[in-house]
Design a protein around this nucleic acid. Structure first.
Lengths: 140, 140
DNA sequence: CTTCATGCAAACCCTTTGCACGTCG
DNA sequence: CGACGTGCAAAGGGTTTGCATGAAG
């Protein structure tokens, strides 16, 4: 997973520096969504000596490559989730933070219908689903 | 429109003070989405002597009443749009900022399908559609 | 060796909070 | 009059930027 990221960065023509390798490893070992602050904390805890700026810069790079997506949590804060660079939507567990991707599920039809009703030309859409993952639903 | 807001605030038991009346008027005369900063600028331009804090506090109040919704633009920034206090989704014109509400459009089926595939229990969803409104599509 | 990346700190937003004063009902 | 609302300034997060130094190819 970390390799996948590094490969993509390599293909994008950016340098595979030490900080980037170490950060990619940190991201890969995360589960579910995480915030930039989480990563910055990880970096500090492990005394990796990587600066805040570098963290944000790598998050942006990975976002451009489609390996990371920034989502907006219901409380308005931002989080990142690792994902495949194909079109999809996110399911976020509100309890443990786990995320899953789902494919189309018929949303095309919804956007077509909305376009018909409104007269808009729809260019992009964002669908985020929040709830409880199988684990957290049954634990409850 | 401003009256609608004031009525709702009244019903909610908050005081209809001068600053709140003036702010409601400013919001009512806006078209499409706007940011908190936009409102703060309006306030300054007209020398209404209303503080930043009051703007944010009213935005929050109106949000609680369901008359205003905070949406996340594709660039990650936050904006507010006036809307009806019923469940719906937003269509945002990327060119002029106009917004429209659309009702269900079949999204229930989509969430059910996503739940089935993933095993998640879905508690809330957010769908935002971005594109061009009839005006801006034809002008092009 | 040249270009690109880094760390640090400071700068910048955006939003919230504390508090003394004003005002609505 | 008493509770609630206000403006101001300061504090607080999160994110970006400027710049001298360091590493990659």
């Amino acid at each position: 997973m970390a390799e996948e990221m590094l490969d993509a960065l390599d293909r994008a023509g950016v340098r595979l520096t030490g900080p980037r390798r170490r950060l990619a490893a940190l991201i890969a070992r995360r589960e579910g969504h995480f915030t930039a602050a989480d990563l910055v904390k990880d970096v500090g805890r492990r005394r990796l000596g990587i600066g805040r700026a570098t963290v944000f810069r790598l998050l942006e790079l990975l976002g451009e490559q489609g390996l990371l997506e920034r989502i907006d949590l219901p409380d308005g804060s931002h989080a990142y989730i690792p994902c495949e660079p194909t079109h999809h939507h996110h399911l976020v567990c509100l309890e443990c933070g786990t995320t899953t991707d789902v494919g189309d599920c018929g949303i095309e039809a919804v956007t077509r219908e909305a376009a018909r009703r409104s007269g808009f030309t729809i260019e992009q859409h964002r669908l985020e689903l929040f709830g409880r993952c199988p684990n957290c639903s049954s634990a409850n």
